[in-house]
Nucleic acid binder design. Structure first.
Length: 417
RNA sequence: GCGAAUGUAGCUCAUCUGGUUAGAGCGCCGGGUUGUGGUUCCGGAGGUAGCGGGUUCGAUUCCCGUCAUUCGCC
């Protein structure tokens, strides 16, 4: 029987979990490691698909929650699927919506968000959920739309149905995110529920794929999502549980402190089956995330931070991040980064981008987004090359010491040869 | 020339009949953002209240003078 997705490992880096490979989908291949471009609402904000292709984007990731609210999965299905709808002919992913129910529902307006770097107290969000906008039970989640407050619900089955309507190449199983403030008991409970939901997601997914086969349509792939937060034994348990199921690949979910990424990812990837792709959900706001993820076995990333930060004027350079709105760039007629090969750096100056931001001109958002997205896509591409030719550790050291400074980079270089 | 109104932060304006360190919005300066927050979020700087007198325990506030701006009338 035809498979929804193939993954071929082309090279391994000795002594690490890093590898290069190719994910093959009905809409084309993804050379890995790869940075997947954020296309939450079936658009990469401020960019045309031509611009995304030009900056080296191989694949985009959209979001089930956002698309079910607007325009509705049925509209996308009627359009012939997300590829036709948004005019992106390459590989696509959709996230299940679980994260949004957490971040926009349960934690909405409560000062708790996915990045709360708060002390690790014991907050059981389920106990608070009756007064909040989302409620999670074993059956699924009920929540209120952040757009108009209407009552909605999502189950593993309905998430799969929506994702199949949207029609991306790779889906994520419906999961429950554990909050940064969650205590171990709740982490365990949410993980168990995520496993239950993963099995139900997989069962419904297979039924829907059978329908595609009957209609002669492309098969769609499903990743199981590993949870377990910061608990090593739970992460390992989750990787074992899901690794033993017939998923096409795996997503690693949760919320991480930057310094926790490498060890959490390592726990999981030492256990997951080696021959399936692994996606690190939502991480990649800064270069160290990319190097650490790949070194410990991640094949694909997605992260909205590069484009979100771009829209607010925070731009990457190889010497660290700058805020292009700063006064000092008003008459700086050099590129954002003289070593960057993006369209923006090839054609425009810091002074011009600074002007666009100050004048509130929308082109600034586009030029900044092209630059930041190109910066991370290229960084991961060069990581892939460095695994290919064995220079990964040299590249990593050189890149991170320049970006963070020798002192700042040290924490990321510990233990490297 | 005469009459009237108005002068408070870079800008537009608050400070109720005189009462602690004169506020806001915008702008300006800096920072944040990790399964998306384009209208974002968080900090910060900045005013001898046009100027000079007077009354008062105390004046941005009341009085006088002066300068400036605006409007109206000769």
């Amino acid at each position: 029987m035809k498979k929804a997705l193939d993954f071929e490992i082309t090279k391994r880096l000795d002594g690490t979990l890093a590898r290069t490979g190719v994910i093959k989908t009905p809409h084309g291949d993804i050379k890995t490691p790869a940075f997947i471009v954020g296309g939450t609402k079936a658009t990469v904000k401020t960019l045309t698909v031509e611009q995304v292709l030009a900056l080296g984007g191989q694949s985009v990731l959209a979001n089930t929650y956002h698309l079910m609210l607007r325009p509705g999965a049925d509209v996308i299905a009627a359009a012939g699927g997300i590829h036709k709808f948004m005019n992106w002919q390459g590989p696509t992913f959709t996230d299940s919506g679980g994260f949004q129910i957490f971040s926009l529902g349960m934690a909405y307006g409560k000062g708790i968000d996915a990045t709360s770097h708060s002390t690790k107290g014991d907050v059981d969000l389920a106990k608070h959920s009756s007064t909040q906008l989302a409620k999670v039970t074993d059956e699924g989640a009920s929540f209120k739309s952040h757009l108009d407050g209407s009552s909605l619900s999502m189950t593993p089955e309905s998430s799969m149905e929506l994702q199949h309507q949207i029609g991306a190449d790779v889906h994520m199983s419906f999961d429950e995110l554990t909050a940064p403030l969650a205590g171990r008991d709740y982490i365990k409970q949410a993980m168990d529920r995520t496993h239950l939901w993963a099995e139900r997601s997989l069962a419904r997914h297979k039924q829907l794929n059978d329908e595609h086969i009957a209609k002669g349509e492309n098969l769609q792939a499903l990743y199981g999502i590993v949870q377990g937060a910061r608990e090593q034994d739970l992460r390992i348990e989750s990787a074992k549980f899901l690794g033993g199921r017939d998923f096409d690949g795996y997503g690693i979910g949760g919320v991480f402190e930057p310094e926790e990424i490498s060890e959490t990812v390592r726990w999981v990837n030492e256990v997951l089956p080696e021959n399936k792709p692994r996606h690190l959900l939502g991480m990649g706001a800064q270069p160290a995330d990319l190097f650490m993820g790949v070194q410990y076995g991640i094949d694909t990333f997605d992260c909205v931070a590069p484009t979100r930060q771009a829209r607010n004027g925070a731009l990457f350079t190889y010497d660290g991040r700058i805020n292009i709105t700063n006064n000092k760039y008003q008459q700086d007629f050099t590129p954002i980064d003289s070593e960057c090969d993006c369209y923006t750096c090839q054609n425009y100056t810091r002074a011009y981008v600074n002007h666009l931001f100050r004048a509130d001109e929308v082109l600034g958002l586009t030029l900044a987004s092209i630059h930041n997205e190109r910066f991370v896509v290229r960084t991961v591409d060069l990581i892939r090359d460095s695994i290919g030719d064995g220079s990964f550790f040299d590249y990593k050291k050189r890149f991170l010491e320049r970006y963070y400074g020798v002192e700042g980079a040290r924490v990321f270089l510990n233990g490297d040869k």
